[in-house]
Simulated scan of single mutants.
Amino acid sequence: MKIAVYGASGYQGKLVLAELAHRNIDMLLAGRNAKRLREAAATVGTADTLQRVADTDDHDALVAAFRGCDAVINCAGPFTSSGPAVVRAAIAAGCHYVDTAGEQLYTKAVFDTFAGAAERAGVTVIPATNDGCVPGDLVAHLIAERVQPIEEITVSHFVVGGVGFSRGSLRSAVDTMDTIKAGGLSYDDGDWRIGIPARLAAVTLPDAPQPTEMVKCPLSEVVTIPRHVPVRHVESLVDAAVGAQLGTPLTPQIIDSLPEGPAQEDRRTQRFTYLVDAIGHDGRTARGTVRGHDTYGSTAVIAVEAARRLVADGAEPGVLAPAQAYDPTSFLAFLAPHGISWTISVSAARRTDPAGNAQENRRLRPT
């Protein structure tokens, strides 16, 4: 098994390299700059590993870089502008593909653009194999097995601790600022739409005395969950403090002056909680809770395992959501030793929203 890492010299890319090395998986480093690739390989102790230079505007070079590999992990953002070229090249080279993207419209574009090509090539493409989308998508599928049919799902992200964003994440935020300010897509009545106001302004964390103020945020779970869960409405929220950080205007010069990414000690003290709240047609509610630490380190673990499983176990060809490619319980169990836990609770028919407010039952309208 050989896995290529594109964007290997970036902050997230080096964490992925370290995870591959830790698991003794053969790798290939690919990126735009030969000097930076050599430095990245030396940093993670893989100086003798094969390295290939290819830019995203050179399709033939990208395809040649991936030849002989079984899968590609793309860590090179902003994905909205550069990601499609890497997906296209991976498919042309006959490689399975995953990426660490957190850009919602890019995730949807991968489904819309590459499904047919991936099927014809016999490869599987899974965008957004990151700390939030994979566990959230898998937990949503498990909730749907317990509560059917589901009327609406709200995905909420909470991150606390001293960790900032990497330069790559900030560049992605700048590249998609209009989408962030608009709140991104919601899934509503059978299609994805932008500009739909959030149904909730606050969400109560488990055991929290008071609700937390929330804002709409373009998370990829809105794109993936409706592909395997019959549901009428899906939206995604983030706590208002993180939303304010994402919406802060930054120039390229300011980003370049910042550290490459959070220090290891800061990552160690960070904590995240991701909630998947579902309301069933029969009035029952369900909550999936995912907890962990170190978003960037967790993303490296998840992306490597996502690519490894595609090579070792296979999946249907095409562009898939995580729960369409992997057994949810098995993948989530794999994450437990890496500090990621999950629970699902299902209520009786008395219905409350994620903010803890009682609601009247509403019938599911046909789509």
Rank of each mutant, 00 (worst) to 15 (best):
P226C: 01
I196L: 11
A208E: 11
I255A: 07
V231N: 12
A278E: 06
E213N: 12
D207L: 02
H233C: 05
E305L: 00
T273Y: 07
E305F: 09
G297Y: 13
S257E: 09
V203L: 02
D188R: 11
R284T: 02
P226R: 13
D189C: 04
V223D: 12
L275D: 03
F272Y: 05
P249G: 02
L205S: 09
I279H: 13
A241P: 13
V304W: 15
I254K: 15
W192I: 04
D256G: 06
T204E: 14
E305D: 09
D191R: 15
A286Q: 06
S236A: 10
D189I: 02
Y296N: 12
Q264K: 14
A303L: 15
A202I: 00
I302D: 06
V223P: 15
I196Y: 14
D189A: 04
D189V: 03
D207R: 02
R309K: 02
D207F: 14
E235L: 05
P206G: 06
L205K: 04
S257M: 05
T204W: 12
P209C: 06
A244E: 15
K216T: 13
Y187P: 03
P211Y: 14
H293C: 01
E265G: 03
A303G: 08
I196P: 14
T289A: 14
G261T: 00
R227C: 13
D239V: 10
V229H: 03
G280L: 10
A241V: 03
Y274Q: 09
R267F: 01
R193K: 10
I194Y: 09
R232E: 15
C217P: 15
F272W: 13
L258Y: 03
P226H: 01
V276G: 01
C217W: 10
H281E: 05
V238K: 12
A307Q: 10
V223C: 11
R267H: 01
V229S: 08
T212P: 01
P218W: 08
H228L: 12
P211H: 08
P211D: 05
